Structures are given as structure tokens and as C-alpha cells.
Computed example of a mutant assay.
Amino acid sequence: MPRTLVVIRHAKAEHGNPGGDHERTLAPQGVEDAGALGRWLAGEGLLPDLVLVSTAARTRRTAELALRGAGLDPAQVPTWPSRAVYDGGVDATLAAVQEADDDATTVWLVGHQPVVATLTLELAQPHRGDHAIVEAVGAGFPTSAAAVLHTDVGSWSELVPGRARLVGLRPRNLG
């Protein structure tokens, strides 16, 4: 069964927060960008069956606003917050994806840089997919960007580096 992983970097966040990095909120531009990202994802037919999201405030809010922008009620979409996606690094983030329910054919992963770019490139090793898109991911992964990966694994638990094809990228500035 073909599966799609949409790797999303959280929207633009405010600098600093008295509660620390984990509690940073979205900047006004980030609020706008997250909704626009959701509209783009809906337009591409990339509605999620499951959302894996870092426990950080800015990623949770990005996921909520993107779901609303996509025309979905966030309360109706299974969402799994994961501390591993916040601070676990590439291997822990991949492990969180590998635990996804196999009934989910499209999964959104909302996380942080540099893990989102590194994970995207590792999954597409040896840079399978559109060469220009691979280069764009390698050059940077701006806030509110989404990388679209297709894989033919039978189960999310089988997703390992090199088992996906990078087929799309939506940087924030594409509106």
C-alpha cells in the first residue's frame, strides 16, 4: 500500500518565552503561514490520517492551524504528541513515525529543524526523487515548509533510510 509522509517544520515562532523554548508560541506571521500551509496541503490532496507532532507549543499550534486551514476539525484527526519529536533527534523521530498506525496512509510529522531536513534527506537516500527538490531541502528547510515523501513500505515500522522518494516541497514563501 503506498504511503505518504509529509514532514513539516513548525511555523515562525516568537523569539524567547519566559517558559523556555518548549513553550515558545507562534508569531503572527507563523499563524498566517500555518493556515496557508494547510490550504496548500488540502489542495494537493494530502489530508492526514494521523498527525505526529512535537510536544512544543509552536508545533502543536502549527498542526492545529494547518488542520483548520485544510478544512479539518483538529479534534477529529488523530494527533500523537511526542517528546521524541521535540528533542530526540533523527533516530528517535524516525522511531516515532515507525510506530504510526498502519491504517494511516498519510501521516503529517510536525517537528523542528535541523531534524526535519536531515530525516527527509535520509529517508530519500541516495537522494531518490526530484533532484531540484532534494537540493532545495539540503539548502534549508524554512518555517512552514513541507516535504512530501512517498514510500511503498507495507507497514510504517518498515520505513528506514532510503525507503522513500522525495516528490514535493512547499516552502513558506510559495503562498
Rank of each mutant, 00 (worst) to 15 (best):
P74K: 15
V85F: 10
T62V: 10
S54E: 01
S54H: 01
L94M: 09
S82G: 00
A56Y: 01
A92E: 14
A57F: 00
V97A: 04
A70I: 10
L123K: 02
L123F: 02
A63Q: 09
A63G: 06
Q98I: 05
V53A: 09
L119E: 11
P114K: 11
W108Y: 08
D101N: 10
T79G: 00
V77H: 09
A117I: 08
P74Q: 15
H127N: 14
T79H: 10
A100H: 04
G71I: 07
T93F: 07
L67K: 12
S54W: 01
A100C: 03
P126Q: 11
V51W: 03
T120K: 10
A63L: 11
A117E: 14
L94P: 03
T106L: 00
A66Y: 14
R68P: 00
P78S: 08
D103L: 08
A117K: 08
T106Q: 02
D102S: 04
V51G: 01
V110G: 00
L123H: 04
P74T: 15
A96C: 02
P126G: 10
V85K: 05
D73M: 06
L121Y: 13
R58P: 02
A95H: 10
L119H: 11
G69T: 15
A75C: 00
R61N: 08
G89Q: 13
A117L: 05
Y86D: 05
P114L: 12
G89M: 14
P81N: 12
A96E: 12
R60W: 07
V110E: 08
D101K: 06
R58Y: 02
L65A: 09
L109P: 00
E64T: 12
G89I: 14
A57P: 03
D101Y: 02
D102H: 08
R61K: 15
P114F: 11
A56M: 01
E122R: 15
W80E: 14
A124Q: 06
V116L: 10
Q98W: 04
P114Q: 13
A63T: 08
S82R: 15
V77F: 10
A92R: 14
R60G: 01
P114R: 12
P74L: 14
T118M: 09
A92S: 11
Y86E: 04
L123I: 04
W80C: 01
T59R: 00
T79M: 15
A63H: 09
V115R: 07
V107Q: 02
G111P: 03
W80I: 13
H112M: 04
G69I: 14
S54N: 03
V97G: 02
A100M: 02
V53N: 05
